[in-house]
């Protein structure tokens, strides 16, 4: 092998020096987390939000979950008829909808199988707890996450519009 003009070690030192100058000029690549925050992309799978009105407790999400971390209980209620003189309707009421984030592996299958658009991904990530039992989010807490759900992003050119 031919000997290089500049010894490799000095070349390496030059690179680290250039990086030092660059960091002093433009700031570091890292951020100091609790004080500064990086915003995750729109599609990031942070936490699952629940729109309770849409849920019919059909159990599709609970059954398709790979590690069974969704717990659903529900019952049927009779609601007043839509038109006067009609028969009372049967409505599915949700008693319990819990997701255990200590078990969840964030695969997103539940969001995908939901036929009634009741589950959504939110990029929110700050919900760690000192106690592992507190990671079980019930339906009111899952409903609160709904506020953080972003609009679906626009697609790249060439994609079919309005179709998944």
């Amino acid at each position: 092998m031919a000997k290089p003009k500049v010894p490799g070690m000095f070349k390496g030192l030059g690179i680290t020096f250039n990086t030092l100058v660059d960091t002093l000029k433009n700031g570091a690549a890292t951020v100091q987390y609790p004080h500064e925050k990086e915003s995750p992309p729109v599609r990031a799978r942070g936490v699952i939000a629940l729109r309770e009105d849409n849920c019919t407790s059909c159990m599709l999400c609970a059954r398709s979950c790979p590690d069974w971390c969704i717990y659903i209980e529900g019952h049927k209620e009779l609601a007043p008829p839509r038109r006067a003189g009609g028969k009372p309707r049967g409505v599915n009421k949700l008693d319990r909808f819990d997701i255990d984030y200590a078990l969840c592996m964030y695969c997103g299958i539940c969001v995908e199988v939901c036929p009634f658009d009741a589950l959504f991904w939110s990029p929110e990530y700050e919900y760690s707890e000192p106690k592992i039992a507190d990671l079980l989010h019930d339906k009111t807490k899952l409903g609160e996450w709904m506020e953080t759900v972003p609009e679906a992003p626009e697609l790249e050119s060439g994609a079919l519009k309005g179709k998944k």
Binding site: P41, R43, E154, L155
Partner: peptide, 10 residues
């Protein structure tokens, strides 16, 4: 695939 690329990705 599950979804298409988001705008600006390319």
């Amino acid at each position: 695939l599950k979804d298409d690329l988001p705008k600006g990705w390319i």
